[in-house]
Amino acid sequence: MEIDIGISESNRKDIAHGLSRLLADSYTLYLKTHNFHWNVTGPMFQTLHIMFEEHYQELAEAVDVIAERIRALGFPAPGTYSQFVELSSIKEEQDIPDAKGMIRRAVEGHESVVRTARSLFPAAEEVSDEATADLLTQRIQLHEKTAWMLRSLLE
């Protein structure tokens, strides 16, 4: 059945592609954060172990919301590691950093998600896609706050 939500197929496709990049960044950050949760050591172990768990649980919920928005726009959501690697601006971890290194890399990941989300606003705003704009605003707010809180641990 044809989709008639007031946004052309071409514009929906552009927005869905941008959201696919956001999904890939979010999923890659989820994996990174889960890795840090499992492998953190040192004097801040308990604090970071619990915090990373909270972060990856939030990201697990977020990827579902993002994927469902892509589907609502009429396009398939990427769902394989190879697709995520191709689409994500966040690189996989090749080593296990110390606790402060994990915090720094987590900050970088959250800021990458913010940049990706922010880059999608023009396409959403151009066609009055308030649903996508609202999703982007929520993601930006959460990731900016998380990055700030993580940076505070390094001071």
Rank of each mutant, 00 (worst) to 15 (best):
E2L: 14
I3Q: 15
D4N: 15
I5R: 12
I5H: 14
R12I: 04
K13Y: 10
K13F: 10
K13H: 14
D14G: 11
H17R: 14
L22S: 01
L22M: 01
L22W: 04
L23A: 01
L23S: 00
D25F: 01
D25I: 04
D25E: 01
S26Q: 01
S26A: 08
Y27C: 05
Y27I: 10
T28V: 10
T28Y: 02
L29A: 07
L29V: 05
Y30Q: 09
Y30N: 03
L31W: 12
K32F: 04
K32A: 03
T33N: 02
H34L: 08
H34F: 06
H34R: 08
H37P: 04
H37C: 01
W38S: 02
W38H: 02
N39T: 07
N39P: 00
T41K: 11
P43F: 12
P43K: 09
M44P: 00
F45T: 03
F45Y: 10
F45G: 08
Q46F: 15
Q46H: 13
T47G: 04
T47E: 13
F52S: 00
E53A: 06
E53S: 08
E54M: 01
E54W: 07
E58M: 11
L59E: 07
E61T: 13
E61I: 09
E61Y: 08
D64Y: 11
D64M: 09
D64K: 11
I66R: 05
A67S: 14
A67L: 11
R69D: 13
I70F: 09
R71D: 12
A72Q: 15
A72Y: 10
L73V: 13
G74L: 12
F75S: 14
A77S: 15
A77N: 05
A77W: 06
P78E: 05
P78T: 00
P78F: 01
P78W: 04
G79E: 08
Q83H: 06
Q83E: 14
Q83R: 06
F84S: 08
V85T: 13
L87M: 11
S89W: 03
K91N: 15
E92L: 12
E92S: 13
E93N: 14
E93H: 02
E93K: 05
D95M: 03
I96R: 06
P97Y: 13
D98Q: 12
A99P: 06
G101E: 07
G101R: 02
G101Y: 01
M102D: 02
M102Q: 08
A106P: 03
V107N: 07
E108G: 07
G109M: 08
H110G: 08
H110A: 13
E111S: 07
E111F: 02
R115K: 15
R115C: 10
A117M: 12
S119C: 08
S119N: 10
S119K: 13
A123W: 05
A123Y: 06
A123L: 11
A124M: 06
E125A: 10
E126T: 11
V127D: 10
D129P: 07
E130W: 11
E130H: 13
A131M: 04
T132W: 00
D134C: 00
D134Y: 04
L135I: 03
T137W: 07
Q138G: 13
Q138V: 04
R139G: 00
Q141A: 10
Q141S: 09
H143G: 00
K145W: 00
K145G: 00
T146C: 00
A147E: 05
W148F: 12
W148S: 09
M149E: 03
L150V: 02
R151C: 01
S152M: 13
L153Y: 15
L154S: 02
L154K: 01
E155N: 07
E155R: 09
